[in-house]
């Protein structure tokens, strides 16, 4: 979701659109889970206490986010979740790194600024990944499945990239893919020189590549699927 879109939805939610809030939360679920897990330094599920605290913090972030303060939304969410988690740990007496003196506080401040700068760079990438994840879930594709559908050899990978760029040229086929959530293998092979076998074999990976290619606004993700110039020369 691009910045302006986020702002739009947030305004909608703050004006009292509960359905939009629900949709928004569902969209960011993987991020909440990941952030909570990262802060707790352990894998968390939806049933754990920490996740619900993270969810409540996220809900508060929706209400209190102010884009004029110069933060990205995800960054703000992470900050709120982190604070609430620390409070929770203190309550539970599990968090042993209590701030005892000013020196430690100052050190933490520096670290947090550093972390902030790093995460501002990342937040756009995270947005892109979340968006891709949302798109792929329509096709019942999850990232962990993709390893087995990835072509291992560079040559085959290049071929899959070529197939993808060929495919997005046919607008009707893309529409078919978007609406039916099925890859139109036969109609595509009839129109192109490619065979059905490599398409079938790498179908899930191919759909992922097509999704990325269909969204040129995902600048960072697009970098990953560009055939690197070094490999082309070889």
């Amino acid at each position: 979701m691009k910045d302006f879109k986020v702002k739009q939805t947030l305004l909608q939610i703050q004006n009292g659109d509960e359905l939009a809030r629900e949709r928004f939360i569902r969209y960011y679920k993987p991020y909440i889970l990941n952030a909570v897990g990262h802060i707790c330094k352990k894998y968390v599920t939806w049933s754990s206490d920490e996740t619900s605290i993270g969810l409540i913090a996220f809900n508060r972030a929706i209400d209190t986010f102010d884009s004029s303060k110069g933060r990205t939304f995800l960054n703000y969410v992470y900050l709120l979740i982190q604070r609430d988690m620390i409070d929770y740990f203190r309550k539970e007496k599990r968090y042993l790194h209590l701030v005892s003196n000013e020196e430690q506080l100052l050190h933490e401040l520096n670290a947090s600024i550093e972390f902030y700068q790093q995460s501002t760079n990342n937040s756009e990438l995270v947005e892109e990944i979340l968006e891709l994840n949302a798109k792929l879930s329509q096709y019942n594709i999850s990232f962990e499945q993709l390893e087995s559908h990835c072509p291992k050899h560079r040559k085959t990978r290049m071929k899959v990239f070529q197939i993808a760029s060929e495919f997005i040229k046919h607008k009707d086929l893309v529409d078919q893919l978007m609406h039916k959530q099925v890859f139109p293998v036969s109609s595509f092979t009839k129109r192109s020189t490619y065979h059905a076998k490599p398409i079938e074999r790498h179908r899930k990976y191919l759909i992922t590549i097509i999704m990325i290619k269909l969204h040129p606004e995902w600048v960072r993700l697009s970098n990953f699927i560009q055939a690197d110039p070094g490999s082309e020369k070889r």
Binding site: E147, C150, R157
Partner: peptide
């Protein structure tokens, strides 16, 4: 993506 036992890495060459 991070799951219970593993995390998924999108490598620079476009593989997962």
């Amino acid at each position: 993506q991070v799951t219970e036992n593993q995390y998924v890495l999108l490598c620079d060459d476009g593989t997962f």
